[in-house]
Structures are given as C-alpha cells and as structure tokens.
C-alpha cells in the first residue's frame, strides 16, 4: 500500500471511528460492524486494521478505553469518545468534507478533459 493511500485511509478510518463513537461507548467489534454497515464494506477490507487505529487514537487521548461486559455477557473492551476526541471530530469532519469535495470535483474535471 502506498504511503499516501495509507494516510488517506488511516485518517478516514479515524474519522469514522470518532463518528461511530458519537452514538455512545462501543467495543471494537461493534465499531467495525457500524463502519461496515455505514460504508457498505468498502473501507474495512480487513477488520483487524481497526485495532491499531483504536490503540493509536487512545494514545492521542481522543478516545478512552475501559473493560466492561458485552451484550452477550462477555468481557469486552469498550471505547468512549473523550472531550479531546469530540473536538477532534468537530474539527476534522468539515476538513474531510472539503477535501473529498475538492478531490471529487478535480477527478470529474480531469476525466471530462480526457474524454
């Protein structure tokens, strides 16, 4: 995977995690389910890639982790949005929108010109 693509994916994944956690504390599996549902399985090709992202975000202080009990009574690690994470989401979401739009516009224009 090229670096640029990985960065793009990583930051979009972070943003999606933050978005998922706005619904409330979730464990990793629930987050992956939400992301798969919301993106129609396009982003999380390998579910495992979610976990390094979660741990990294915890280190940044955007999310906090705590062990708890899952819906089927198993021990699970729950992630929760911190104040810093909420601020991060509010700041990053519009940036993403702008970038995505700009990229979309650019890609459309280029493809027209090539045609």
């Amino acid at each position: 995977m090229a670096d640029a693509e990985s960065d793009l994916l990583r930051s979009s994944l972070d943003l999606l995690v933050l978005k998922a956690l706005t619904w409330g504390p979730m464990h990793g599996y629930a987050i992956s389910e939400w992301i798969e549902g919301a993106t129609a399985d396009t982003l999380l090709v390998e579910e495992g890639t979610l976990y390094p992202a979660l741990h990294r975000m915890e280190r940044h202080g955007w999310i906090t982790a705590e062990w708890g009990v899952s819906e089927n009574n198993r021990r699970a690690k729950f992630y929760k949005l911190s104040t810093a994470g909420r601020a991060r989401f509010r700041a990053q979401a519009p940036v993403w929108h702008r970038h995505a739009e700009a990229i979309a516009v650019a890609l459309r224009r280029t493809s027209l010109e090539f045609r």
């Binding site: 390998e46 579910e47 495992g48 976990y51 390094p52 741990h55 990294r56 915890e58 280190r59």
Partner: peptide
C-alpha cells in the same frame, strides 16, 4: 475477514 492477526497484535502492543 480479520486479516493478519499477528501483525495487528504486534502493532497494538507496540502502541500500548
């Protein structure tokens, strides 16, 4: 579907 479990594990431990 999970992918490379050992790599994920190592990455997570390093970060932690």
């Amino acid at each position: 579907r999970f992918g490379d479990r050992d790599r994920v594990r190592d990455e997570c431990i390093t970060i932690d």
